[in-house]
Nucleic acid binder design. Structure first.
Lengths: 211, 211
DNA sequence: ACCTGAACACCGTTCAAGT
DNA sequence: ACCTGAACACCGTTCAAGT
């Protein structure tokens, strides 16, 4: 009897995605969603089945959107690095949805386009067979793992005892620069480049700088 | 009037930990916990505050238990690798609780003992200051990230289109060994060692094999 | 100090009934 | 084909009341 409106599957999915995008999966309740859409809760069930199926569909779409990755650079190593960097950026754009993909164990599926690009660069670098496959997988694991750790850091509350205090006392006098770095917020941009390059150097072969 | 029993804080925590350990955080409801303890739901609130505080306490204990890590091996690089391997093993022993620690953003705090051990090895390898700090942090990120990705893989449902099919068609004839490896289940033991060694070699300095 | 049941405000889901 | 409200079985949490 209140201001009810007809809805369709698409509008349900869009509203759900919006809720998840800025309040996280926990922020998506069927009742809130219904209220947002101006329909009865049960209308949603007609269109999307249930909450689980709704989230599954959102996950599928996210996987699809993670689409193509473009490699840039002169050497295979540089191009592989550019894939890793692009991947990290893309993953960080949709944190909540990526978390859902991860929860549902579809990370690998989502990574397929990037995997293709990396295989191409591994071949270009002269790698073949198991060595190439492992080089690719190591880099995949690395990128996804890094993003997960990074996100965690950002969501983190102020660290309990505070890392600074723990380092000040002991190692500080021996190696103050180390204590300062470990005490502060990590520069994840730099850490990512550093570790990505280290892995690529080991597994793709070190690119010779031209000069 | 039913078979109610007096409880204390410790018994509540133990019962809660048991529930989380084998049914996951989602399996812990205050009502189930009360039933398990043979007390009224509200008795739990008197002892531990609320669900959030209860989980916080479990997390604190897990962090404490993650305690010391022992380095083994001849060279600093080998010893750093042993820390990484031990860390991975420990993390994999308590998946649900580690997930909770992670959710609460206390991963870094939990990693402090390992961080100390790694700093020691970095110093032994002759690293100082920012370089040492970064070498340590890269390895920390690496281990935690790897374990998160690994766990995800294991919880994963059968991959949707199945990676095998996707690789068969295209690259298979060019590089059948690669297609076979990427189509199969990753040997994460090997991937972890491979990537850990690659990072250590780049950042700690490559250990010379004695022969 | 410790525990109780009742009550409140939420959930997701099912279902018979309406148009 | 699409939507409804009522009902069920769950939640976490608060609170006045008991001992």
């Amino acid at each position: 009897m209140t201001d009810r409106q007809p809805i369709d599957r698409e509008s349900v999915l869009l509203a759900a995605e919006a809720l998840v995008r800025d309040r996280g999966p926990a922020g998506l309740s069927m009742r809130k969603l219904a209220a947002e859409l101006g329909a009865a809760v049960t209308a949603i069930y007609w269109h999307v089945g249930n909450r689980e199926a709704l989230l599954d569909e959102l996950v599928q779409r996210t996987v699809a959107e993670m689409g193509q990755i473009e490699a840039r650079g002169a050497t295979p190593a540089a191009r592989a690095e550019s894939v890793a960097l692009a991947l990290r950026r893309k993953l960080r754009e949709r944190p909540h949805l990526i978390a859902l993909v991860h929860e549902r164990g579809l990370t690998e599926l989502m990574m397929l386009p990037a995997q293709r690009a990396l295989v191409h660069e591994a071949h270009a670098a002269g790698l073949r067979g198991t060595a190439a496959a492992e080089a690719v997988r190591v880099l995949q694991f690395h990128v996804v793992g890094f993003v997960l750790v990074e996100r965690n850091r950002e969501r983190a509350p102020r660290q309990q005892p505070g890392e600074p205090e723990l380092w000040d006392a002991e190692t500080a006098e021996q190696d103050p620069a180390l204590a300062a770095t470990l005490g502060g917020v990590p520069d994840s941009e730099r850490l990512f480049e550093l570790s990505t390059r280290a892995l690529i150097a080991s597994l793709w072969g070190i690119p010779r700088p031209k000069e």
